[in-house]
Nucleic acid binder design. Structure first.
Lengths: 348, 348
DNA sequence: GCGCTTCGTCGAAGCGCTTCGACAATGACG
DNA sequence: CGTCATTGTCGAAGCGCTTCGACGAAGCGC
C-alpha cells in the first residue's frame, strides 16, 4: 500500500542506499541525483517508516514524559509544564509520550524502558529519592528531571528555584509589615514521601522567615478547596494573630480565600495571601485576583526537553568528540512576583 | 548489551520462533518448553525490542492524542480527558503520545500519520468540519473522536451530550423561577471556526430556552477571567433585568463571579450562576462554590481510548470474522447537575 | 601519463522480531 | 496396524530501513 524506499529507488533509478543518504544526509549525494530522488519521493508521496528506521538505526524519536496521573487531572500549573514539553519535543522532531509512572512503583518503568522504545525520558513530580532515576540510569536511558533529587551530581535537571521564590514571597509580605505569616504547604504525606517542591518550600520558607527574625509556621494539608479551609482553621488555632498566608497548594489556596471570607476577614485589608508557584491564569481566577509568585510555566517543560534533546544529539556524535559525554544541564528558574489584589499592608 | 531473542533461544535450547510463540501466544507451546523459555527470559532480563516487533508485525503500541496546545496549558477540565486517555492506554498496553496538532493545519498530521508510527489516534477539540479527520481516513489510520464532526456517519466518537446538559441547566434555573438567562459561551472565533462544544451548546441553549417559551440570549467571549467580566457588562447592557448566567467558559466563569461581586450583586440572592461542563475540583474553587453541570472527566478520555483499542483489536482479527469491520462506537455522556452555592430562587 | 586521493554510488549485511510452511512425533480411529 | 489429523517445534524469509566496505570515475600533482 504505502510506498517504500525500494519503490522510490526504482523510480529514481538509484539504489536504496542512495535514497537513504539523500534523506539522512549521512553521505554526500550529487545535486542531480538528489533532485531525481526527491522528485520520486514527491511523486509517490513517500514517507519513511519510523519503525524500520528505528530498528536499523537503533534510534527513536520518542521521548517519555514520566509523571504520576491521578483521576483528577493535573492543575493548570502542571499542565503548562506538559504543554511546554510537548511543544518543544514536536519542534525538535521528537514525539512526547505520556507515561503514567509514579515514583511509587518503578516496575512499569523498567518494563517500558527496556523495550527500547524511548530515546530518552523526562521525569516529573520528582522525589528527593526517586527510584525511577536509578532504573533509568541502570538501563542506560538518557533522562532529564523536571525537579531534582537530593543528590544532583551528574544528573541533568530543570527546576524551580524555591529558595529565591520563597524568599521573595516572604520579603514582599515583610515589606508590607507582616510578621506573623503561615505557610500552607502540600500534605504531610507528600512531605513524608520526599516530594521535592513540598520539602524544599518548607525549608525555604523557614529560612526566609528566620532571615527576618521571624518564627516560621507551616500547615500541611491535602489538595482541594475543602482542605484549604481546614488550613485556615488550623492556622488560626495555632496563631490567632496571623496576618498573612503563603500557599503553594493550588486548589487549597482558593479554600483559604473562601474560609477567610466566611470568617469576615477581608483580603487584603485584614489578611494578605500570597500564592507561590502558580500559573498566572489561575491566579486571575480568584476574587480578588491572587498576588502570586508566578511559575515559569511552559518554559520549564520546554527547557527540560531541549536539554534532553541536546543530550541525545551529543550521544550520537560521541565518537567525534568523546570529551563532552557526561556534560550535565542544571538550571533553576525563579518564580516572579506579581502583585495583584490579595496582598497589602498589615492592619494596624 | 541488552539481551535479544536469539540469546533467549540459545539459553533455552529452542529456536527463536518458539520464543516468539511463547511471548505472543500465536501458536501453542508445550508446558515444559514454555517453562524453559520463561526461565531463560527471566535469567537474562530479556524484554522484546518494540521497534523490531513493530516492524515485523506491522503493528504499533502507540496511540496519538491529537490536540492543539497553546502556551497556557489546558484547563483542569480538559486535562481530565487527557489523563483518562493516558491511563486507559497504559492499562491496555499502549502508549499515548501527545501530538500538538490543531485543526488549522493538517500537514504535520499527514506527516506523522504516514510514518506509520501510530496504531491509531484520538482527536480532541474537534470541529464540525475537521480536516484532520479526512487525513486520517485517507491514510487509513484508525481513529476515534473526543467530540464529533457535523456528519458522524461511520465515525466513532465519544462526546458530551450537550443537549441534555444544557436542557438540565436551564431546567434547573427555570425551576428556581428564572426567566431571563444569559449564556456565556466561548469566543466568537471559536463559534465561527465551528468548534463543536461552542456551536452545540449555543444551539442547545437556544432550544432549551424556547422549550420554556423564553428568549435565549448569548454572549461570546474569549477565555480568561477578564473576558468573563466583560461578558457581564455586555449581558447587562443587553438585558438589565437578567437574573441568571449559564457559562461554559471555565476561566471566564470566574470573571463573571468577580464582576457580579464588584457590582454589588450577590450570588445567589440577586443573580444565579450555573457553570456547564466543568470539573468538580474547579467548581469547588469558586466562592461560593459553583453550581455546575459536572463534566464526565476522565471517563470521556478513557472511553475514547477503549473504543479505539477495541477497533484495533477487531482489525487484527478481521479475517476471522469479516462482518464486524466497520462497526462504530458512538456515545454521548451527559454532564450531571451538582447544586452548590451559586444558584438559588429568583429574587422577587 | 602514472599512481593517488576524493567523490558519488552501489550491493549486501544486518537491526530483532513475526510468521509461514514444513515436518517429526504423537494419538485417534476403523 | 496402517492412516490421517493434530500438536509442537524449527528454519527461513522477510518487515523497511541504515550503514559499511567497495569500487569506478574523476581530479590532482609531478
Amino acid at each position: 500500500m504505502a510506498a517504500t524506499m525500494t519503490d522510490v529507488a526504482r523510480l529514481a533509478n538509484v539504489s536504496v542506499s542512495t535514497v537513504s543518504y539523500v534523506l539522512t544526509g549521512a553521505r554526500p549525494i550529487s545535486g542531480a541525483t538528489r533532485e531525481r530522488v526527491l522528485a520520486a519521493i514527491a511523486e509517490l508521496g513517500y514517507s519513511p517508516n519510523a519503525m524500520a528506521r528505528g530498528l536499523a538505526s537503533r534510534r527513536s524519536t520518542l521521548l517519555g514524559l514520566l509523571l504520576p496521573l491521578g483521576e483528577d487531572g493535573v492543575g493548570a500549573t502542571v499542565s503548562a509544564f506538559v504543554n511546554g514539553a510537548a511543544s518543544a519535543a514536536s519542534a525538535a522532531g521528537y514525539h512526547l509520550t505520556l507515561n503514567p509512572v509514579g515514583a511509587d512503583d518503578a516496575a512499569p518503568l523498567r518494563e517500558l524502558a527496556s523495550r527500547r522504545l524511548l530515546a530518552g525520558a523526562a521525569l516529573m513530580a520528582v522525589r528527593l529519592d526517586d527510584p525511577r532515576v536509578d532504573v533509568l540510569r541502570e538501563l542506560g536511558v538518557p533522562y532529564v528531571l523536571i525537579g531534582r533529587t537530593r543528590d544532583t551530581t551528574g544528573v541533568s535537571f530543570v527546576d524551580i528555584d524555591f529558595d529565591t521564590t520563597m524568599a521573595d514571597a516572604v520579603e514582599h509580605l515583610v515589606g508590607l509589615g507582616h510578621r506573623r505569616v503561615v505557610y500552607v504547604n502540600h500534605s504531610q504525606d507528600a512531605l513524608a514521601a520526599g516530594d521535592g517542591p513540598t520539602v524544599r518550600t518548607a525549608e525555604a520558607f523557614a529560612r526566609a522567615m528566620r532571615v527576618h527574625g521571624l518564627e516560621p509556621v507551616m500547615v500541611a494539608v491535602d489538595d482541594g478547596a475543602a482542605h484549604g479551609r481546614a488550613a485556615v482553621e488550623e492556622a488560626l488555632a495555632r496563631d490567632p494573630g496571623v496576618t498573612a498566608f503563603v500557599s503553594m497548594n493550588e486548589s487549597a489556596t482558593f479554600g483559604v480565600l473562601a474560609a477567610l471570607a466566611d470568617r469576615g476577614l477581608r483580603v487584603p485589608q485584614d489578611v494578605s495571601v500570597v500564592s507561590v508557584v502558580m500559573a498566572p491564569a489561575v491566579a486571575e481566577l480568584a476574587h480578588p485576583a491572587l498576588t502570586a509568585m508566578e511559575s515559569p510555566g511552559a518554559a520549564l517543560g520546554r527547557l527540560a526537553v531541549e536539554a534532553l534533546v541536546d543530550q541525545l544529539d551529543r550521544t550520537d556524535r560521541r565518537d567525534a568528540d568523546p570529551a563532552d559525554d557526561k556534560e550535565v544541564h542544571q538550571q533553576l528558574l525563579p518564580c516572579t512576583l506579581r502583585v495583584r489584589g490579595t496582598s497589602g499592608p498589615v492592619r494596624s
